[in-house]
């Protein structure tokens, strides 16, 4: 299991488009991917979960990957979040 602490940087957080794009990208990895935020765990392969978490710009989260290709998944996820989903 690998994990990384990150801060959400794009203005509107995980709204529809970033949530779909991010979840879609994570779905390609066989490992489990989830986000710990505000004491809860959210399935990062689910756009609904990501939106329901109400993560905003500036929210501090922990990204956790567990299973096959966990390092690759973590790197890809971290890059997307740090780049603010290209917004």
């Amino acid at each position: 299991m690998v994990s990384k602490a990150l801060v959400i940087t794009n203005a509107q957080g995980f709204h529809m488009r970033p949530a779909s794009v991010f979840a879609g990208a994570m779905a390609k990895f066989p490992c489990k991917v989830f986000i710990k935020f505000n004491g809860n765990e959210y399935n990062a392969k689910s756009p609904l979960n990501l939106m329901a978490a109400c993560m905003k710009c500036g929210s501090e989260i922990e990204l956790v990957c567990d299973g096959d290709q966990e390092n690759e998944a973590l790197a890809a996820a971290a890059e997307m979040i740090q780049n603010g989903f290209g917004e």
Binding site: M16, R17, A19, S20, A23, A27, N43, S46, L48, N49
Partner: peptide
Amino acid sequence: MLGHISLIEDPFL
């Protein structure tokens, strides 16, 4: 509609 499709297919849901 593309957004809707991603909700319909949501793996958690």
